Amino acid sequence: MISGLMAAVAALLCTALLAAVVRAAVLRAGARGRGARAARTPHLGGIAVAVGTLGAVGAGPVLGLAALGDGVGPLIGAAGAVALLGLAADLWPLGARVRIGVQTAAATVVVALASGLSPGPGALAVLWIVLVTNAFSLLDASDGAMGTVAAVTALGLAVCAIADRLPGLALLLSVLAASLTGFLVHNWHPARIVLGHGGSLFTGFLLASATVLVHTEAGPARAGASLFALTAVVLADAVLVLVSRRRAGRPLSEGGADHIAHRLRRSGLTVQGTAVVLGIATAAGTVTALLVHDGSLAPPAVLPLVLGTAVAVVALLRVPVYGDEALRTEQAPEAAAREGAPA
């Protein structure tokens, strides 16, 4: 308990400090990211989160303070490989096949060496890990959104791991949540640095893999209900992006201001308010998942969450995000402010 708390505090402080160092180094070198948002904010913050998380967790066994247990080693190694993949994608353009291929290989390592699943469920677990990893990566489109959602999810999964007597995995998830909290010091609006692919893919992969590892002993219905509740927000964002781009005839790989955070902001929320709302929604899903996981609620208890998520997706699809209508929607609050301002 004490060693875990020490590791979490160390991760928080290390990540907060390292994020500031990385930001200063990137700005000093004149390296900027691609796209309008990255042009004003360094996009290599994932280095701080990955180093802070893996360094704090790895220090436990080295110093004799905490043992990671079976299965955590392969997860750490695979997550490190995904972090390097993301860092490479931040620095050079990588094709979708390369990114998906590396993620699939890393997920296969985790499932084969850490989960104990048979080939059939194992293949589904690999697909799930790749899907959720990229869904989390997509969410990194607004200041504080990804970090808030991921930190809440990590804490919920840590509680599940503790209940399942997986102390090594619980330690890893707790440290990840602390690292993300330290990063939010710099990523809260107005963000001074963002996660980039290195941080979002690393975080998403750890969380996606952890959802599989804490549900290997659960029945299909209970596992499916809990998995959905834990990832409802990121899955809703992925569905919004895919459906809206398909309806608009836009390439699925093309970036755009069409994520759940953008739609909430165009509905009247501030950037900070958007992160808070997404965090609250994630907390509601996480609590539901915890109750289902420990048997306090039956799997059908997730149905209201499923219905609420579906209603939210349908409602948010009506928010204009492309073309002139979206531009008018975005400019309307500014025009109203000018009309109400004193001469």
Rank of each mutant, 00 (worst) to 15 (best):
I2H: 09
A7Y: 00
L12E: 04
A20Y: 08
A20I: 07
A25R: 15
V26N: 11
L27Q: 09
L27N: 01
A29K: 06
R32S: 10
R34D: 12
A39Q: 14
R40D: 14
P42E: 05
V51A: 15
T53I: 02
V57N: 00
D70V: 11
P74L: 02
G77L: 09
G80A: 07
L84S: 02
L84G: 12
L85D: 08
L85Y: 14
W92Q: 12
W92P: 05
P93R: 10
A96W: 13
A112S: 14
L113F: 15
P119I: 02
P121E: 03
A123E: 07
A123R: 06
L127Y: 01
V130D: 09
V130H: 14
F136K: 03
F136Y: 14
S137Y: 02
L139S: 04
D143M: 13
G144Q: 03
V149N: 07
T153E: 14
L155Q: 05
G156Y: 05
G156E: 01
L157Y: 06
L157Q: 14
L157V: 08
I162Y: 08
R165P: 04
L169H: 03
A170H: 02
L171H: 12
L176D: 12
L176V: 09
L180K: 13
G182H: 01
G182L: 11
H189P: 15
P190W: 05
A191P: 04
I193L: 14
L201K: 01
F202Q: 03
F202A: 08
F202K: 12
L207H: 00
T211M: 05
A218M: 15
R222D: 08
F228D: 06
A229N: 11
V243Q: 11
V243I: 03
A248M: 10
G255K: 12
G256L: 04
S267V: 00
G268W: 11
L269S: 07
G273S: 02
A275C: 13
I280P: 10
T282G: 01
L297T: 03
A298T: 10
P304C: 02
L317D: 03
R318F: 05
V319L: 04
G323L: 06
G323R: 07
G323Y: 04
G323I: 08
A326F: 01
L327N: 09
R328D: 13
T329P: 01
T329M: 05
A332T: 13
P333K: 08
